[in-house]
């Protein structure tokens, strides 16, 4: 009796769990259904509101022709170079801003003004100065990553309790060890949040830049689709961009969870 009862409860729990694991599917499915219904109603021209099935076909075509992967590869390469530059620059500058009074006095006001300028607002100037080639796009990504990372690093380091620094002083830790053993690990959680924010913003501004001036990349694919009235291509581009952004952010979140196992798990 007891074993049957517990088996029933067990199966109910596992069914519940499986249901819970799939609930996230409800909203995209609803969206897809609404889209299909509205498209089928004939209210809008089929050239403007493409039915989901057609977009799916275009997606497969673009995938097989290699066009989609090529575009994504170009975009991701720009993102990667800009991200590495911006993140390392932001990390160093943020640490200097938090740890050195001199750097703070000289650079803090300018830094806080510049970080208010939206990356998109810099596109025209960057094009004038650097031309429409790769440099301008990579630098735009660098800028988009640099500021959130620098801000998170400097605020994160400033928030480190004084007691940690006292322990470092008591054991007379050399400077490199102060940075590697105390400062960066202590500030790592906010820094990683800054990296996530930076990555998301960089991805957005990169696509915008590619829409305006590019001969390759996902943004350019969308722009070409628009010019040729291929809204299906536009939609494939839009969805791919969203998915890539999601995957990038999720992988950083996964990294977050792996890195910060030392934190107490609050349930």
């Amino acid at each position: 009796m007891i074993s049957t009862a517990s088996a029933v409860i067990g199966s109910r729990v596992s069914v519940g769990h499986r249901m819970l694991a799939l609930t996230w599917l409800i909203s995209p499915l609803l969206l897809l259904a609404t889209w299909a219904l509205v498209a089928a109603s004939g209210h809008y021209s089929a050239q403007l509101l493409i039915p989901p099935a057609d977009v799916w076909h275009t997606f497969k075509d673009l995938l097989h022709s290699g066009e989609l992967l090529e575009g994504a590869a170009f975009s991701l390469r720009r993102l990667a170079s800009g991200f590495v530059l911006g993140a390392s620059g932001g990390l160093l500058f943020g640490a200097a801003l938090a740890l050195s009074k001199t750097v703070e006095v000289y650079c803090a006001p300018m830094f806080h003004v510049l970080r208010q300028v939206p990356s998109i607002a810099l596109i025209p100037m960057f094009i004038l100065v650097f031309g429409v080639e790769e440099t301008f796009k990579v630098l735009l990504v660098t800028k988009a990553v640099f500021f959130p990372v620098a801000l998170a690093t400097s605020e994160g380091i400033k928030a480190i309790p004084r007691s940690h620094f006292e322990v470092a002083r008591l054991y007379r830790l050399p400077r490199y060890s102060l940075l590697l053993d105390v400062v960066f690990p202590a500030a790592a959680p906010p820094i990683l949040t800054g990296l996530r924010v930076g990555l998301t913003r960089a991805w957005m501004v990169l696509v915008a830049a590619e829409l305006l001036a590019a001969d390759s990349g996902l943004g350019q694919m969308i722009e070409m689709g628009r010019q040729m009235m291929r809204i299906d291509v536009v939609m494939v581009g839009v969805i791919t961009i969203g998915l890539i952004g999601f995957v990038l952010d999720s992988s950083l979140r996964l990294l977050e969870r792996r890195l910060f196992r030392w934190k107490a798990i609050k349930e």
């Binding site: 007691s163 060890s177 202590a186 030392w262």
Partner: peptide, 22 residues
Amino acid sequence: FQDHRLFPWKTVAQNIAIALKR
């Protein structure tokens, strides 16, 4: 101190070892 002041991101052994950095 009254609070242990161990570094939360280091294990017990690593926390003790940090005193030997010099």
